[in-house]
Design a protein around this nucleic acid. Structure first.
Lengths: 239, 239
DNA sequence: TGAACACATTTGTAATATAATATTTTTATC
DNA sequence: GATAAAAATATTATATTACAAATGTGTTCA
């Protein structure tokens, strides 16, 4: 996503409105001000407002009809796999419970993707996985940041699956991992341990052991899930 | 999705352009006519064209910049989980290979969703699953159409998973199933056999047997996958 | 040769007008 | 007084025109 400063007017308005809608500023079902009111509020022309409205409608957040105004669509119609929508949601309510939902999705997707990569992954795609792994090793030894190669590792596996629908989830997975990083900064595992676990996945994929790749990936995510569930129960008792 | 006739002008143009883009009418990377040319081509105002352009940009299909015009984004940026985009893709290239990709996704998502439904499904959500199942039974006995209750069954499980990201995929799964139906009209299994397999999934969910529900669902989808792979190999040898 | 500047092209934004549509109010008829 | 038809009204939908901003291209001048 481009920087805010680089966005044009209608895109900036889209951002503002999108955030407000997801934060629940406008009552669900009925709600937004009329286009004319939005023009006043932001001090812009109707053109810009309408383009923002159209973009938000394309993302499933709102719908508009003559005389009736602009209505917030029920949340189950929001396109959660749209990067912007996902980002607005996390800004609005970044919580351990959302992270758990992320991990449940990752547990569905990534082990299958790893299995497909082991079965059908092209040599080039598998080389990309290895490249990310080596960078993880490097980061572990130099005590650098392991986050970026970690993201690259998981994205490379999605690509190697050869399935467009899996690879399409790369932004989703990336977001999920970034949220994870926020909650696991001081996890006890050493960086080298993490890299080694990833290596097992890579080796299984490279040698075509689909079931093994799948199980290794599931194990990795399950560990994160266990950690998060522990945190959730801690915060529940703390209340 | 609303009928074409009910759509307003900019939405109709969005449809036309979306289909054309995905069908590859405009060369990837650089391509679309200028806004002015599109106005001429469709005989409409720039307002309508611009709104269509904004909606397509919100779906990741295009981007536009001053002086540079409108460019087709690389396909990996298209939002495949957008119902419209998915529909346009299927119109453009409905094939067994796409169906296989669908099934790989379903094999990732639905068994996990069934497991979650077994663990955390609310009584109301599970009742919805049962309702769909009974309608399947009814259709099987009266030789009616089993398709609609079949869709309802799978959707109800996604809802019962309690995870928004799973339920969000209901349109995707529905589309995948509809495509499946096109290829399996004369499958040898009787309607009652299909209903019975679904019943096993339902019973496992209702009794909280997560692993069993997961495996039953995986079995169901694997059967479809085997059928499709058979078809694919048939059509490959036929060439 | 190269750098600065002018120019042309295309999207971005604004302002205004008219049409379509759905709600509300009024009016007319029984 | 009740009900249905018609008119008024509010809001989005579409169209038109004008100008601003951005960006690539070419030309001129040092």
């Amino acid at each position: 996503m481009a920087r805010i400063e680089n966005l044009n007017l209608s895109q900036r308005v889209t951002n503002e409105l999108g955030k407000s809608i997801i934060a629940g500023k406008y009552g669900e079902g009925s709600g937004l001000p009329t286009e004319a009111q939005l023009c006043d509020e932001y001090g812009i022309s109707r053109t810009a407002v309408r383009e923002a409205v159209k973009m938000l409608a394309a993302k499933g957040l709102i719908s508009s009809r003559p005389r009736q105004g602009i209505r917030v669509e029920p949340p189950e119609n929001w396109n959660l796999y749209d990067t912007s929508v996902l980002g607005w949601m996390l800004e609005s309510s970044p919580s351990l419970l959302v992270l758990k939902e992320f991990l449940q999705m990752r547990l569905a997707i990534e082990p299958q993707a790893a299995a497909l990569a082991a079965r059908h992954g092209s040599p080039e795609a598998i080389a990309q996985i290895e490249k990310a792994l080596l960078e993880m090793d490097n980061a572990a030894q130099t005590h650098g940041s392991i986050h970026e190669p970690d993201l690259a590792f998981h994205t490379a596996i999605l690509l190697a699956s050869g399935n467009r629908f899996f690879y399409q989830l790369r932004d989703f997975i990336t977001t999920a991992l970034n949220v994870s990083f926020q909650y696991t900064t001081n996890a006890k595992d050493s960086l080298q341990t993490i890299a080694d676990e990833h290596r097992k996945i890579y080796l299984a994929i490279k040698s075509g052991e689909a079931e093994r790749a799948k199980n290794m990936m599931a194990y990795l995510i399950d560990e994160a899930m266990a950690y998060i569930e522990l945190k959730i129960s801690e915060s529940a008792t703390a209340e």
